[in-house]
Simulated assay, not measured.
Amino acid sequence: MLTHLAGPFVIGIDAGGTKTRCVVLTLGGTLAGCGTGPGANPNSGGDTAGALSTALREALGDIDRSLVIGGVFGIAGAGSAGRPAAVTAARSAWHAAGLRGSPAVVTDIAVAFAAGTTAPKGIVVFSGTGAGAAVINDGAIVQRADGYGWLVGDQGSAVWLGREAVGAALAALDGRARATVLTDAVPRALLGGAVVAQLDGARCRSRHRRALALAGSTVLPGAGGGSTLVLAGPAEPAPNPQLAQAIIKEVYGRPPAALGRLGPVVADAATAGDAVARQIISEAAEWLLRDVDAVRPALGDPCAPVVMHGSVLREGPVADAVRAGLTDRFAEAPRRAGDGAVGAASLALRRLGYPPPPPARVDSGQRSR
């Protein structure tokens, strides 16, 4: 925190499903403060007002509130359906911090684009807690595809990857599908190795007792009276209902956004060559590229920049596949976004008539979402 910097200041917030980031910039684009808070999207279990307040107070520190002349809050779920609640939460946090006026409220999609370019118009494809693509013009969404939340959309997001991974692991555990690295990796990531070992040990002991009980009565009378039925042990490992139920309890006991922590698990399994994980990764990239294809007609300018944003598109197999697909579709390679909170502050500067700093110039020390 560089509180000795002279104001005035602007504030930018990128409030996603799993993390809220806040920065304070001078009018020249120099970082004066930064803060973090928990996820703010109410659709995935976040407390919007509380998350905004936490990040805002930390970023401001002892900065003179009277020197803050504007701000932009990019909030996940702040589209037309959730905008009234997002605006109310933003104003509540702003005033609770002792600031005058009110911040502008946009979706986190708009600040994601601004985090990758100073151009006013272009395409952003994003995949973090949520996922989708949009054409942006001067901070406003011209057209969007997906970004509809974990329940009915967000295909290709970290949460979607997690949900697919859990589904694949459960299908293998109860015998509906073939084995995959995810059968072991998912429960270990969700429950921890000690719990998985304990459940596996209990299962093995139960199977051993069952085998001993059957050892002395493997020949039973047949249905016809004169024939017999010989019981044999299973050729394949029996399903593990205890482990499956433990996974279910963990998944449903946390907010949906928590599934996003399994995104790296799927990426690691795919990189190691697991066929099931590779299929999930391929489908994620396909969904994200379909989003781009859906909004591309609204772009107009074929030379406008394309920005990739979010944890899934920062690095890894999904990012590599989407980057390759975008390079094939456009005149130049896509740009990688920086801190979304800096993007929001850049929009605040633009709205006040000041030039936004190049995205790579301001480094808050932490990546968004």
Rank of each mutant, 00 (worst) to 15 (best):
G226M: 07
G162P: 11
T36E: 12
S206A: 12
P302F: 09
Q143F: 09
P187C: 03
A272Q: 06
L151K: 14
L5N: 06
T118E: 14
P356V: 09
V307P: 01
R367N: 02
I69R: 09
G12D: 05
G33Q: 02
A32E: 11
V159H: 11
G130V: 01
M308T: 04
R369Y: 01
A337V: 00
I75K: 03
R91A: 14
G201V: 03
G7W: 13
L27D: 00
V292R: 12
G338K: 14
A331C: 09
V125M: 12
R296L: 15
R254V: 01
A246Y: 08
V265H: 01
E286D: 12
A140K: 13
T327R: 15
G46T: 13
V265R: 00
T30G: 05
A333G: 04
I109V: 10
T54L: 15
A110C: 09
G365Y: 10
A85H: 11
G16T: 04
G71I: 13
G253S: 08
A133W: 12
F9G: 03
L190I: 06
T18M: 05
D200G: 10
E164P: 08
M308C: 10
L173A: 10
A238H: 06
W150C: 13
G33R: 04
G116A: 05
R210F: 08
V230H: 14
A267R: 03
I13E: 03
L2N: 12
N137E: 01
R57S: 12
I69E: 03
G226R: 15
L25C: 02
D291Q: 12
A76E: 04
D64R: 15
R178S: 02
C22D: 01
A81T: 14
E315I: 00
L212I: 15
A81R: 15
T218L: 09
E250Q: 13
R254W: 02
S227L: 07
Y354E: 01
A194E: 15
S311Y: 02
L67R: 15
D274G: 03
V196Q: 04
S364Q: 08
E164L: 12
Q155P: 15
V265Q: 01
V265A: 04
V181S: 10
P239G: 05
D154L: 15
W94D: 09
A298N: 08
V251S: 12
V106P: 00
C303Q: 11
G162H: 10
P187Y: 06
L212V: 14
S206W: 09
A15F: 05
V266G: 03
E332R: 09
D146N: 15
G340S: 07
L190R: 13
W287L: 05
S44Y: 06
D146S: 14
D47L: 02
Q198N: 07
A32L: 04
A93K: 00
A40D: 07
A119W: 03
G193D: 13
Q198Y: 02
A223T: 05
R323P: 02
G224E: 07
N41A: 06
A211M: 10
K121T: 11
T18C: 02
G74K: 07
D146P: 10
F330G: 00
A360H: 09
G35N: 10
R203Y: 05
